[in-house]
Amino acid sequence: MLGLSRKPKQLTFERTYPAPVETVWRAWTDPDLLRRWWGPEKTTVPECEVDARVGGTIRIVTEATEAMGKYAGTRWPMEGEFTEVEPTARLAYDARSWTEGEEATTTIEHANDVTLRATDDGTVVTLAVTITAVGSKAKLAAFGMKWGYKAQLDKLGDLLKAD
């Protein structure tokens, strides 16, 4: 089903949040908190399981709301397994993401490495995402592009205003 694909690029992110490292850790590992920030705008997260221990499962389903028009009801599951868990410091998991009903053609495999570091001002979060494989005929639009750049920029704008 999957073609092995050399990583096209490793994506890395770094953010500093004015929150204690314990709180940021909970935001990543407590399903009730995780589901509150995981889904992009116009989506909900109806299913969220996080078993943050090595070999434990992470499973999150993002679902398009009516506001996404023709995509309403489309579900994008992600399912993976933790490979590294050091409480409040590091989380790594290997996962697959796909569009429900089109698993064979839309699956993307990715490795994710999250580190948290307490500083005087709060917590520095770094995230490295490496895409390790994609479905041979993956309609990747379903995963990243369908919610559109505009929606994401609007959401960012709202957040900035909230600050």
């Binding site: 992009p40 705008e41 995230l127 994401q152 959401k155």
Partner: peptide, 9 residues
């Protein structure tokens, strides 16, 4: 997508 998600976090 990840940028928006981390903003949301």
């Amino acid at each position: 997508l990840w940028d928006a998600r981390l903003d949301s976090l």
